[in-house]
């Protein structure tokens, strides 16, 4: 039989909650740090936006390069023979949204010719 291990003093085990609360506090600190980090990154990257702005103003660009897989996706705001927003930039012909919510009236021009084809 193995003798019971000798314990010189009543051990005072560090409560498990110490670790858990420690981790939790660290997470809160990390959470707070993301806001500091966000502010830092914003300050760092905000000037970069100027490059896009300058190019946009110079070339008269109308759409960000979000989708390039097909021509009709590249400039959704520009009505084209094959464009998504064929009738109007505010009309979603695609998806339930467009049928549920038509473009607001104030967004239409007075002239019917400009409103829709």
């Amino acid at each position: 039989m193995r003798p019971a291990p000798f314990r010189p003093l009543p051990s005072r085990p560090r409560p498990a909650s110490t670790y858990v609360l420690g981790v939790f506090a660290a997470l809160i600190a990390a959470f707070a740090a993301t806001f500091v980090d966000a502010a830092r990154l914003r300050a760092e990257r905000a000037p970069h936006t100027q490059a896009s702005i300058a190019l946009t103003a110079r070339l008269g660009l109308t759409d960000p390069v979000l989708m390039t897989e097909a021509r009709y996706l590249r400039h959704p705001s520009q009505a084209d023979l094959h464009a998504h927003f064929q009738d109007h930039p505010l009309a979603f012909d695609l998806f339930p949204g467009g049928s549920l919510l038509p473009p607001p009236r104030h967004a239409h021009l007075a002239q019917p010719s400009a409103t829709a084809d």
Binding site: D63, P76, A114
Partner: peptide
């Protein structure tokens, strides 16, 4: 301006920046 233009040019379609911005926000 856009309204006057579209009155003068019935064969033109005018796309306004405000609408594009709104569309992107909605998109």
């Amino acid at each position: 301006v856009a309204t006057r233009l579209s009155e003068a040019l019935p064969d033109a379609r005018l796309i306004l920046r405000d609408e594009v911005l709104r569309t992107y926000a909605a998109l």
